[in-house]
Computed example of a mutant assay.
Amino acid sequence: MIERVPTYTADQVRDAERPLLEAHVPLMQRAAAALAAIAREELMGAPGARHFAPLEPVVRERADAPRPRVLVLVGSGDNGGDALYAASRLAPVADVDVLLVSERFHEAGFAAAVGAGVRWIELPEAADAGADYALVIDGILGIGASGRSALRGRAREAVTALLPLARRGGMPRVVAVDIPSGLDPDSGAADDAVLPASVTVTFGAVKAGLAAGRGPQLAGDVVLVDIGLGLEGVQPVGEASVSRVVTAPQG
């Protein structure tokens, strides 16, 4: 069911996050739990739910059935941390590869992912295996890129290497973390180096850029995850349609 919800700027969302982060509210873990649950739905074809229980291993009909493969693209910011913790939660049900597109990354999230059995790979292997993945999780850039959203360096190289699959119709489903990487969170501006998402899982509030410019074209279905931001007294900048609103586990 389509719902209309308010949209906010990146600055408004960061301002709402700040007191929670200072109080050590585990926003990243909430986001990662919801992201992993939605990614699991994409893999397993499960219907959506408004509240997510902890992930449990999937019992397959055949013990020798192949596990789905997942590629996780990881940047240097909090989106990369969300994606890494989600990868660790997906490891019981899928073969998960992580491609780091920056020399900086969320070290605790990376340790959790590797400890769960996730593989760290390089770009040539990811590009060669592109069509074999059932799902790609795009955790390269988030709202911290406002005003300078175009991908650069290894991030741009990785997306450019995967885009031909999309043009040939062989692209796996893509789940964008918060926003598609390379999309400006406020204006919706983007160049051609953006992976079009099948689903965008956006945290706390719908970013204005998802409903402006190229946002609707690149975001796919938008799922809004309530992670407990206090935006009730903040003036929204617009409205957007989302496919559903879900509540992240509180912890």
Rank of each mutant, 00 (worst) to 15 (best):
I2S: 15
E3D: 12
R4D: 10
P6V: 00
Y8C: 00
Q12W: 00
V13F: 04
R14A: 07
R14W: 04
A16L: 02
R18S: 03
L20V: 03
L21Y: 11
L21E: 06
L21R: 13
E22A: 08
E22W: 14
E22Y: 14
A23F: 01
H24D: 14
R30S: 09
R30I: 10
A34Q: 03
E42F: 09
G48W: 10
R50K: 14
R50M: 14
F52L: 12
E56S: 12
R60T: 15
R60K: 14
E61D: 13
P68Y: 11
P68V: 08
P68F: 08
R69K: 14
R69H: 12
V72W: 02
V74R: 13
D78K: 14
G80N: 04
G81D: 07
D82P: 07
D82C: 09
A86D: 03
S88V: 12
R89V: 02
A91Q: 09
P92K: 02
P92Q: 02
A94V: 13
D95Q: 11
V96H: 00
V96Y: 00
V98D: 08
L100Y: 09
L100E: 08
L100H: 09
V101K: 00
E103M: 12
R104H: 11
F105I: 15
E107P: 08
A108N: 15
G109H: 09
A111W: 14
A113M: 05
A113V: 06
G115Q: 10
R119E: 13
R119K: 06
W120F: 15
E122R: 15
L123H: 02
P124D: 09
E125Q: 10
E125Y: 11
A127K: 02
A129E: 04
A129C: 07
G130C: 12
G130I: 08
A134F: 09
L135C: 07
V136Q: 04
D138N: 08
G139Y: 10
G139K: 13
L141Q: 14
G142W: 01
I143Y: 00
I143T: 07
R152M: 05
R154Y: 04
A155C: 01
E157Q: 13
V159R: 02
T160E: 12
A161E: 09
L162C: 03
L162F: 06
L163K: 00
L163R: 01
P164W: 06
L165I: 05
R167T: 11
G169K: 10
V174W: 07
A176P: 03
A176S: 07
D178A: 06
I179E: 00
P180I: 13
L183F: 02
L183Q: 03
P185S: 06
D186G: 02
D186P: 05
S187C: 07
A189H: 15
D191C: 05
A193M: 04
S198H: 11
V199D: 06
T200L: 07
V201R: 00
T202F: 01
T202E: 01
T202G: 00
G204R: 04
A205F: 04
K207D: 03
G209I: 01
R214C: 09
R214W: 01
P216K: 05
Q217T: 14
A219M: 05
D221G: 07
L224W: 08
G230P: 12
G230V: 14
G238S: 01
E239C: 03
E239M: 03
S241H: 08
V242H: 00
S243Y: 14
S243T: 15
R244V: 03
R244E: 13
V245A: 05
V245K: 02
